[in-house]
Amino acid sequence: MAYRSPVPDDVAVELKRAVQRWHQLPLDRALAHATVLRALVQELADAVATADGRPAEVVPDLGPRALPDQLTVMAYDVCQLDLQGDLSLARRLVDVRRSLD
């Protein structure tokens, strides 16, 4: 049986674009925008914890280099629980990417 990603195509495309844009930022700009990306990661983590019936925990601050990976993990978790529509995840990823320009 082949593995099928839980991430819908629209979310996958926007996640890839947001991560690529993040990697293009100079460090000073990444640092300046880190709070926006970190807030989205935390919001997704909180939604996953709530859906799992667990208390929310603070996502560790591992620096700007780790933020795209943290976003990717949380996006996958959100999609695995089928919460992406409720959170307007694709739209949120578009907004984050546009804020990085």
Rank of each mutant, 00 (worst) to 15 (best):
M1G: 15
M1T: 14
M1L: 13
A2N: 14
A2F: 13
R4G: 01
R4P: 03
R4M: 09
P6R: 05
P6I: 02
V7E: 09
V7W: 07
D9F: 12
D9E: 14
D10Q: 11
D10V: 11
A12Q: 09
E14C: 11
R17A: 11
A18S: 09
Q20E: 15
R21Q: 07
W22R: 00
Q24W: 05
L25G: 04
L27V: 02
L27K: 01
L27P: 01
A30E: 08
L31S: 02
L31N: 09
H33M: 11
A34I: 05
A34D: 12
T35Y: 15
L37Q: 05
L37F: 08
R38W: 13
A39R: 08
L40P: 00
V41H: 11
V41K: 06
E43L: 08
L44M: 15
L44S: 01
A45I: 03
D46S: 01
D46R: 06
A47C: 07
V48Y: 10
V48N: 04
A49S: 15
T50D: 15
A51R: 15
D52H: 14
D52L: 14
D52Y: 12
R54E: 15
R54F: 13
P55L: 10
A56L: 08
A56N: 12
A56H: 12
E57G: 02
V59S: 01
V59T: 15
P60T: 06
P60H: 10
D61T: 04
D61V: 08
L62T: 08
L62M: 06
G63R: 06
P64W: 10
R65T: 05
P68A: 00
P68Q: 08
P68K: 01
T72H: 10
T72Q: 12
T72E: 12
V73N: 07
V73W: 14
V73S: 06
Y76G: 01
Y76I: 04
V78C: 03
V78G: 00
C79H: 02
C79N: 08
Q80C: 03
L81Q: 13
L81N: 07
L81T: 03
D82V: 09
D82H: 14
L83V: 06
Q84P: 04
Q84G: 10
G85R: 04
G85I: 07
G85Y: 05
L87I: 01
S88D: 14
L89A: 00
A90M: 06
R91H: 12
R91G: 06
R92P: 08
V96M: 07
R97Q: 12
R97E: 11
R97W: 08
R98A: 09
R98H: 13
R98D: 15
S99H: 14
S99D: 14
L100M: 07
D101W: 13
